[in-house]
Design a protein around this nucleic acid. Structure first.
Lengths: 256, 256
DNA sequence: GTATTAATGTTAGAAATTGTTCGTTTAGTC
DNA sequence: GACTAAACGAACAATTTCTAACATTAATAC
């Protein structure tokens, strides 16, 4: 059998636990064609991530792998632009603030950048955002309740809206599925659009993060007007003409 | 093999990740007939834009989003008894019902058995329960909001209690950390105890699932009295004496 | 044709991973 | 509890892979 890079071996070992509750060092060493010492080192590493518990001769599963979502395709699209936009948004966050992070891949990139935040409170309907910030020492995560949309790691519905009523926040960061040149914000999901409206109501400032592909597009549901928000952050691939038109509608537009 | 333009090679490498979770530099170099250095450069480029992570010897996919939580050894302790209790509880569930599933390893076992449920609605503060039922076709999952306790896959706090107010349910299934012989239910966490009280208020029937090790134990917070619940399901390793005393307190006790 | 640029190959030193040895710890047995 | 064989961990050596710089080739423009 061909040798794999070490990380691939770690992943394969982890997969083993899906079918078997325990593994033995000797078996793994034979299977992967490496020394037992290497397997031991692998297992200690996995133990450090608290996936497994080591025993004499092998290891057993401690917890379970949960909530697996396949974000790949969407997250890859325009990732550079999204990361640049997220970096710009990060600059607006000060220690001690209460933030709302909406669903979406761009806000998820922002969540990654907030991991080193100090004394932040993040309120979110996104399980992805929650998981990203779960172990960040300076961030308290409040998950909104709601119905879990099948195949999508986020919460929506009346429960989510109701939960929002309990809070106020300094800034809300939202994504969007489309910004019409008529100055309206669009969302592909009606329930999400309603939730976004609520978020803006309870936050002092509203900031929309949208890469240039969103500009000029529309979608099923309108979640509000550009004049409802304070700042739009987009990337410089957006056409100058479009940005001019949006600025005319009264929204401060930052391009990165 | 004819050499491909670099862009085509990048695309082909990216495709590889669709079928395999990890690739090795040496393999790719051989396959495309280019030097390993070229492959390394390709991978660094892909790392920036797509969801892969470079490792020694190759690269692995990181696109999957895993919310992982650690139960330590709790789930293994008395697992047989917990599963038997869960099977008994499963019999009480009828199609179309709305259920509340509390945190806890026993209720998690019950969640596994509810995967084939018909037209059920499950309301839960437990991310573990939610993940178990996420892809069950006949089950709608409503996650309660709240603060995520670090290292524990569940939600608690005032938000959770507030969310509960929005619902009513047919049955609530709860675990417990201890059942005192004085007839009180105990929980190690004060906030969880409060949440459990709320759950019972909004459900028509309350059922507590507790293996025999819980009987006679107490913990920090009292979450209610045995007379508040309808049925206690425990395993037959519980001492006859203890069961007699609990029955005297007016709770229907089922042993499996 | 040449100039210019991008892509690829080569090399050497640095870094990470893996294998080996050996003394120590552990689990099981008597 | 003492014994034994297996498993473990630490330290070091061997191997593989990485990065960075520079040399070379291919692609494109003029």
């Amino acid at each position: 059998m061909r040798k794999l890079p070490s990380a691939a071996r770690l992943a394969r070992i982890r997969e083993r636990f899906a079918s078997e509750a325990g593994v033995s060092v000797a078996d793994l060493a034979r299977e992967f064609g490496v020394s037992e010492m290497t397997i031991r080192r692998d297992l200690s590493q996995l133990e450090g991530q608290s996936h497994i518990h080591r025993t004499h001769g092998g290891a057993v599963l401690t917890g379970r792998m949960l909530l697996e979502f396949d974000y790949r395709d969407r997250r890859e699209a325009n990732r550079d632009a999204k990361q640049a936009i997220a970096r710009e948004a990060r600059k607006l966050v000060k220690p001690g603030q209460r933030l709302i992070l909406d669903n979406g891949t761009t806000t998820l990139e922002l969540a990654c950048l907030l991991r080193d935040g100090e004394n932040l409170t993040v309120i979110t309907p996104s399980l992805a955002v929650a998981s990203e910030l779960l172990d960040a020492p300076g961030v308290e995560v409040i998950l909104l309740g709601g119905v879990i949309r099948r195949g999508s790691p986020d919460l929506t519905g009346p429960v989510t809206e109701h939960c929002l009523e309990l809070f106020s926040a300094d800034i809300t960061f939202q994504g969007t599925d489309g910004i019409g040149l008529d100055g309206k914000l669009y969302n592909a999901d009606l329930r999400l659009a309603r939730v976004e409206k609520h978020m803006r109501r309870i936050a002092r400032r509203s900031i929309v993060l949208a890469d240039h592909t969103k500009i000029g597009r529309t979608a099923l549901a309108c979640s509000g007007k550009l004049s409802d928000i304070d700042t739009l952050i987009t990337d410089r691939a957006a056409s100058a003409e479009a940005i001019r038109r949006l600025s005319k509608l009264g929204v401060r537009t930052v391009t990165v």
